[in-house]
Design a protein around this nucleic acid. Structure first.
Length: 478
RNA sequence: UCCCAGGUAGCUCAGUCGGUAGAGCUGGUGGCUGUUAACCACCCUGUCGGGGGUUCGAGUCCCUCCCCGGGAGCCA
């Protein structure tokens, strides 16, 4: 964040406009400055003056303003300020004579830009439950915790682009609307411009989808991977970072109908290189956030998740454990634990199994590789053993799967045979098979769920708190 | 979608055996104070989630739907 901004409009007497974060960091004592933000609380001291706590969204910290009775709007405006009011304050930054804050702003002018009726303003001067805040998504970023989530989410987003840019990856904008009817990652939302009350029909009475906007059925994408492969096999290393959509009726603290996903794809890269990149990405992102956003992170460590600091530290400074699926199953079998779902080779790992691995065996992130091919999609590369594929999932404590990736099947015959086995139409995926017909190369990639990353970094328990306007089954308000 | 637990004042919750509701906080008023989740006193606030049923009478019992939380499945 730049240290300061100058006021945009010309004014006769221009005080330096400061955001509160750099103001508190730099503490330019004696300077005449202006801050703009929202009142958190007002405390009155006798008849002489009032304390105002101002927050401008740049940091969880508030700036204490001293508004004295000599201000011409003291009685009729300052003394009526309440939580939520928007104000511009010009004053002198001075050392604070009392405990609780190093500096404070002695106001020369308090300009009220927007009132907030205290009888009806939904945010009170007290802690609210996240469930309640979710009912007011248009106001919840004004709270300390949701504001901090928004800043960290933005910081992580930028750090992701920086990470890939530093390594020469090209950011590819893959399509949001797709006509592949089975991308293999779950239920899809239909995209149509047909009038649902008056659908065009074919002679046999079925809906005539050829008369829809694209001349064929279309959906919202569930993954940009297949398109990313196209560009990886032309540009080398690429990544996508965009919204994805799943019409699954999932009601959990880690699923959304609309979420953001990071999907790198690398040509001439095997599974080990894929894991290396994912691990480097996670560790760099978390390391950067720890360094650049201590105030926001501190808020989560203190009020949201007491074990957060320790967990983040473990990720930033320790190598991830790596085991094969077969080894994981063996570990679970000899754990002596009685799991609700039995452990058996060939079945997918259950949540409780993943939790045992991350929380108890490794006490940190674990990379599980080489899953049975029966439980994985068609595009994953077959291993020589004939039963497993070059897949990898990264499991983290508290969240479970945060990354899912694989080396892709680059051999035409193997891929085509696998598609036939799984009943996938070769014709429709002709373009995908072409990549294996012409200049095919080993390549690998993964998907990182962005909201799950934000959850992991903030310790927020519910994914609906880490995206501004969550879309879940039965809920897309605002 | 399945299992479990919930939905009562603006918020967080209590409400016994069925007899039409309370607390704390917020807010308002006054007091006090370089205060800081300020403090002290007083005051206001209810479609008891929606609909239906049982009953003389339902926040309370039954049915149903919706929403929220925990767990599971699907996955990122």
């Amino acid at each position: 964040m730049p240290a300061r901004f100058t006021a945009p409009q010309g004014r006769r007497h221009v005080p330096t406009y400061y955001r509160i974060a750099p103001l508190l960091a730099n503490q330019p004592l004696g300077a005449t400055v202006e801050v703009r933000g929202w009142v958190r609380t007002r405390r009155d001291a006798k008849g002489d003056f009032s304390f105002l706590e101002i927050n401008d969204g740049s940091t969880p910290a508030n700036l204490q303003v001293i508004a004295e009775a000599r201000l011409d709007n003291f009685a009729n405006e300052v003394r009526r300020l309440t939580a939520g009011c928007a104000v511009e304050v010009v004053g002198t930054l001075v050392a604070s004579p009392a405990k609780g804050q190093a500096v404070e702003l002695k106001a020369e002018a308090v300009n009220v830009r927007g009132w907030a009726d205290p009888e009806h303003y939904p945010l009170q001067k007290k802690r609210h439950s996240f469930e309640y805040l979710r009912t007011i998504p248009h106001l919840r970023p004004r709270t300390n915790s949701l504001g901090a989530v928004a800043r960290l989410r933005g910081a992580l987003s930028f750090a992701i682009h920086r990470f890939f840019n530093q390594r020469g990856f090209v950011h590819i904008h893959t399509p949001i609307i797709t006509t592949s009817d089975c991308e293999g990652a779950g239920e899809m939302f239909t995209v149509t411009s047909l009038d649902l009350e008056h659908l065009p029909r074919t002679a046999d009475g079925r809906v005539d989808k050829t008369r829809d906007f694209f001349g064929q059925p279309a959906s919202l994408t569930v993954s940009g991977q297949l398109e990313a492969e196209v560009y990886a096999l032309a540009l080398g290393n690429v990544y996508t970072f965009g919204p994805t959509f799943r019409a699954e009726n999932s009601n959990t603290s880690r699923h959304l109908a609309e979420f953001w996903m990071i999907e790198p794809e690398m040509a001439f890269c095997d599974l080990a290189g894929d894991i290396d990149l994912a691990e480097a990405l996670l560790r760099q992102l978390i390391g950067e956030v720890i360094d650049a956003h201590p105030a926001d992170l501190d808020l989560f460590c203190r009020y949201v998740d007491k074990t957060l600091a320790q967990r983040l530290d473990a990720v930033a400074n320790r190598e991830f454990a790596r085991i094969t699926y077969t080894e994981a199953v063996a570990r679970l079998e000899r754990s002596g634990r009685s799991f609700e779902f039995p452990v058996s080779w060939g079945a997918d790992l259950q949540s409780e199994h993943e939790r045992y691995l991350t929380d108890e065996v490794f006490k940190g992130p674990v990379v599980v590789t080489d899953y049975p091919k029966r439980i994985k999609p068609f595009y994953m590369r077959a291993n020589d053993d004939g039963t497993t594929v070059a897949a990898m999932d990264i499991l983290v404590p508290g969240i479970g799967e945060i990354v899912g990736g694989s080396q892709r099947e680059e051999r035409f015959d193997q891929l085509a045979a696998r598609m036939d086995e799984m009943g996938i139409d070769r014709e429709q995926y002709g373009w995908y098979l072409d990549l294996r017909r012409y200049g095919s190369a080993p390549h690998s990639g993964f998907g990182l769920g962005f909201e799950r990353l934000v959850q992991f970094v903030t310790g927020m328990a519910n994914i609906r708190e880490v995206i501004p306007f969550p879309r879940t089954p039965g809920s897309a308000a605002r």
